[in-house]
Every structure is written in C-alpha cells, then in structure tokens.
C-alpha cells in the first residue's frame, strides 16, 4: 500500500512535470535566476577571500637586527616569536641572504653595486619577517618586539629598528577594510538569497493556485493530504533539479570567459580554476538549494489550499 502509494505519487509528479511544460519552463527560468544569483555570490565570495588572503600575505612586519647581532640569539628570538599564538609565520633572512637579495634588486644599478664593492664588509643586517594570522594582531607582535628592543643593563642590543610604525596605518586600514567587506558580503548575500527565495516561492504558489479547484476535488474524492501534496512536491523538486543542473552548466562557459578578467581584477583568482576545483561544492549548493527550494515552496503552497 505504502510502496504503491509512493510509486503513484512519484509517477503523478513526473507526469505533471511534463504535461505542464509551459508552466514548468517558466518556473524553472525563475529558479535559474535565483540559483544563478546564489552561484555568482559563491564565486564572488571565493574571489574576495582569495584577494584578501593575498593582500594579507603581502603585509608583514620586519625586525632589522644590528650587524653585530649574533645569529644564535636571533634564532632564539625567532623561535620565541613563533610560539606566539598570533603569529602565522616567521622568516629569517640572514645577512648573506639580505646581501644577495640586495644585489639582485640592484642588478641594473652599477653605481650602487660598485659602492657595495668598495666596502670590505657586508653592511646589511639580518632580519625577521613576521606574518600575523590577522592584520589586527600586528600591534601585539610589534609590542613584543619593542619590549625586546629595550635592553636591560649588561645585555647587548640586538634589534636596530622595527618597521611597524611605518606600516601601521596601512595595516590598520587593511584590517578595517577586511572586516567591512566581510560584513557587507554577509548582509548582501542574505538579502539576495532571501529575495530570490521569495520570488521562487511566489512563482510556484501562482502555478499551484491554478490547481486550487483540483486540490479540492481530490479531497472530496477522499485523497489523503500526502497523496495530494506528494506529486506537487515531486514536481517542485524536478523544477529545482533541472534548474540547478542547467545553472551549473551555464557557469562552465561563463567561468572560462571570465577567467582572464577575474585574474586581472582579483590577482591570483581564476574563475575557471575555481569552477573545476570546486565543482562538487557548486553542484551541492546549486542543485541542492534548487531541489530544496522547489520541495519546500510546493509543500507550503499546497498546504494553503488543503486547509490544514
């Protein structure tokens, strides 16, 4: 009884889907717009996250050591910084390495290189490049380094200077901007999602409104509620499934087309690479929300006319 009931409900839903071709197509188009918006939001979110990540990686603070600072002590300091919970990564640039980098950077500048040759000794000190997990945490790290700079009596001074104060403004701005973008993104996403869900819900409700009398007749013939509701839910899920799949495949050529411009706009972010690498996630979100949206909308719409 239950098994044949389910079979009948599914069959009736599938038949309805194909018979109401015109209504189906228009409902699916509206759903596709909704799912497209959700898809674009997913892309935007990924692009913004990757951009912010890149900018964040470019920001660091550097502690420059005196040329006289012994390497052993610098490495000790490095490991104590690494143990701070705010610190993402610390890079040690030795004096030799600093010289190498300096030479590389000025390889077209003969005058500077010649001046360097004149010196018997490497004039450059070692340094530590420190990256925080979050831009707002640079202040804490800078404070820690400053404490180290203030040497007690009998101790040898190690750090010559810290570039935090120079970068301070930029770092703080970036930190605020990141937070603002993230907050605006969340609000924007919620707003667009809610709006598009309401549009889909209304479209399906209108489609079912025309079947109001039919629902009443089914009740009079003695159909139980789930027997009436079931086929509409199946139909709604089919709308969502097809709309979700079509939207997913629309993003394929679109992400190829957009890939070069996204790379220019967002740096390392490539929309096509993102599409390929996150196909499973996109499938889950687009097809999943399509099917879910269709089922819930149909259920709610029919419920109104069932008088429950």
């Amino acid at each position: 009884m239950l098994k044949s009931g389910i079979k009948r409900v599914v069959r009736s839903g599938v038949v309805g889907f194909f018979r109401n071709a015109f209504v189906s197509v228009s409902t699916m188009l509206v759903m596709m717009i909704t799912l497209f918006v959700i898809g674009v939001l997913l892309f935007m979110n990924a692009a913004l996250t990757s951009t912010l990540e890149q900018v964040r990686e470019k920001v660091d603070i550097n502690a420059y050591f005196l040329t006289s600072a012994p390497e052993k002590q610098i490495l000790e300091l490095k490991s104590s910084i690494e143990q701070m919970p705010e610190v993402e990564r610390v890079e040690y640039i030795s004096r030799e390495k600093a010289l190498e980098r300096f030479k590389a950077r000025h390889k077209n500048d003969q005058l500077t290189l010649q001046a360097l040759e004149e010196l018997d000794e490497n004039p450059l000190g070692a340094s530590l490049a420190i990256q925080a997990k979050d831009p707002s945490q640079y202040a804490v790290i800078a404070k820690f380094l400053e404490d180290k700079t203030a040497v007690g009596e009998g101790e040898q001074q190690l750090i010559e200077n810290i570039n935090y104060s120079q970068n301070k403004v930029v770092i703080e701005r970036l930190s605020n901007l990141t937070k603002a973008i993230e907050k605006a993104g969340v609000i924007f996403t919620i707003f667009l999602t809610v709006a598009s869900i309401m549009i889909v819900f209304n479209t399906i409700r209108l489609a079912i409104y025309t079947n109001k009398d039919e629902i009443e007749v089914m009740q009079l013939v003695g159909a139980s509620n789930w027997f009436i509701n079931g086929p509409y839910i199946i139909e709604g899920m089919l709308y969502g499934l097809v709309a979700g799949l079509v939207t997913l495949f629309i993003f394929y050529p679109l992400s190829i087309y957009m890939s070069s411009s996204t790379e220019v706009l967002f740096g390392a972010f490539n929309s096509f690479t993102f599409y390929i690498n996150n196909f499973g996630m996109l499938f889950k979100y687009l097809v999943g929300s399509g099917v879910g949206l269709g089922a819930v909308s149909s259920y709610l719409a029919v419920r109104r006319y069932l008088g429950v």
């Binding site: 079947n211 039919e214 089914m218």
Partner: peptide, 21 residues
C-alpha cells in the same frame, strides 16, 4: 462535474481507486 482538468478520463477514474489504495 469537477473533474481533475490535468488528468485524462482514465486517470480521473483511476485516481479515485488509487487514493482508496
């Protein structure tokens, strides 16, 4: 009459039997 417009004659009659299991 109050038939189900989206179903054929056969399906309209079969529906009454389907709901009765």
């Amino acid at each position: 009459f109050r038939l189900i417009e989206s179903k054929t004659v056969y399906e309209n009659i079969a529906f009454a039997l389907e709901v009765a299991g």
